[in-house]
Simulated scan of single mutants.
Amino acid sequence: MSTEYYLGLMSGTSADAVDLALVDFANNQVQLAATHSLPLPSDIRQQIHHLGNPADNEIDRMGELDRQLGEIFADSINQLLSTTGISPNQILAIGSHGQTIRHRPPGTVKYPFTLQIGDPNTIAERTGITTVADFRRRDMAAGGQGAPLVPAFHQAIFQKPNIDRAVVNIGGMANITWLPRSGKTLGFDTGPGNVLMDAWILKNLGKSYDANGDWAASGQVNKELLEDFLAHPFFAQTPPKSTGREAFNLAWLDNRLAQKTLSPADIQATLLALTAESIAKDIKHLTTSACEVFICGGGAYNLKLMAELAQRLPQATVASTAALGIAPQWIEAMAFAWLAYQTMNRKHGNLSAVTGAKREVVLGGVYFA
C-alpha cells in the first residue's frame, strides 16, 4: 500500500518536550501514523527561557543552542524511525517549527521579526531527510503576524458545513481558530495559555505544571487581580494579533503582584481564570449561537481549566480534540507535517485573514537531504 509520509516536529512556548507526528497524506487523506515525544532537559529549557528576553552574550548563546537543539531534534526523529522501523527514504520531508526565542509582531517594533532556532541543516544532515523550517518569517515578510499558522491546518481537517466550530490550542500561549459553517476562517492569539500557571507553580512548588489544575482548584479567584490582569493592552487589541513570553512572563506577573497579600494558590486560581476568561470572551465575540469548541495542546489535560471554559461558554459544547479522533497533544506537530506537505507541493500555508498578511504565500525554507 502506497504511503506519503511527512513528519512534523513541534517544540512550543513551554519548552517542555519535542513532539513528533508522522502523518500519511496518501489518497488525499490526513492520517496520523506514529507519534513520539522527547522531554527537554531542564537546563535546555532554562536556556531557552533565558533567551526569550534581552541579556548579555545573546549571539554566542543563541548560536550554540541553535546547534544543540538541531541535534536534539534530529535525535528525536531518529528515535521515532528506530521505534517504527520506517526508513528515512520513506519520509518525503520534515516540517520543523523550531523553538521560538523571540517574537516581535507588527506594532511592537519598527521592523517586526520572529526567531525560531533548532538548526535545520543539522536535522537534514543527521537524519538524511529533507527538512522544511523557518515557516513564520515569510508570512511576516508579506506583512503578517507570522502567527498563528495552525488555523490553515485546522481548516483543512476540522471545518464542517453544518456547524460553527472553534479549535483552541492551549500551549504556553493560547490561540483560537474560528471555523464558521460559511464565511472566512479566522484565527488569532487570545493571550497566555499555560505559561503563567507553569511559571507560578514552578516558582512556588517546584513543579513544571499544575496536574489537572488541582492546585488552582484549591484556591479562590481574586476578581480585582483578574481585572488587573485583563487590563493588559494585548486584550484590547483587535485581530490579527499574536503574543508570546515577551509580553506575558514571570517578571510581568511579579510586577502585578507587588504589594498584594494573596495566597499562592489563590494566585494560581486567578491565573487559570485569566486563561479561561480571555479565551471565552473571544469566542463570545465571534458568536453567541450554538457552536462546538475543541481544545488541543497541554491545556486540554487541565480538568479545572476545561470545566471553567465549559461554564463560561454555556452555548457551546466544549471537548478536547480526542472527540474528533486525535489526541490533543499531537495537533500542532501534525500541523507542521501538513505545512511541510504544503511547502513541498508549492501551496500556501498561511491564511491572510488570520495573520494579516497581504497575500497567501508558500512558507518556509527547504533544506534538501
Rank of each mutant, 00 (worst) to 15 (best):
I176W: 04
F188E: 08
V221M: 12
A156T: 08
T114G: 15
G144P: 01
M197G: 10
I176Y: 07
A141Y: 03
D164T: 13
G143E: 10
I157M: 10
I123N: 08
V221G: 09
K203T: 08
D210V: 05
M197H: 02
G193M: 06
G118H: 04
T114M: 08
P192V: 05
G118W: 01
A211S: 15
R126E: 14
A141Q: 14
D189H: 04
S218V: 10
A142R: 01
I176E: 10
G146M: 08
N175S: 13
D139E: 03
S182R: 10
A147V: 03
K184P: 12
A124Q: 03
K223W: 04
S218P: 04
P192A: 08
D119L: 02
N175W: 02
Q116K: 03
W178G: 09
R181Q: 15
I201T: 01
T127W: 03
W215H: 15
L179C: 09
G191Y: 00
D210Q: 07
L202D: 15
S182H: 00
R137W: 02
M140E: 09
N162I: 00
N175Q: 06
W178H: 08
I176S: 10
S218D: 14
Q116F: 09
G206S: 13
F188N: 05
R137Q: 14
G128M: 10
M173G: 14
Y209K: 11
T185Q: 00
R138D: 07
G193Q: 09
L225D: 12
F158N: 07
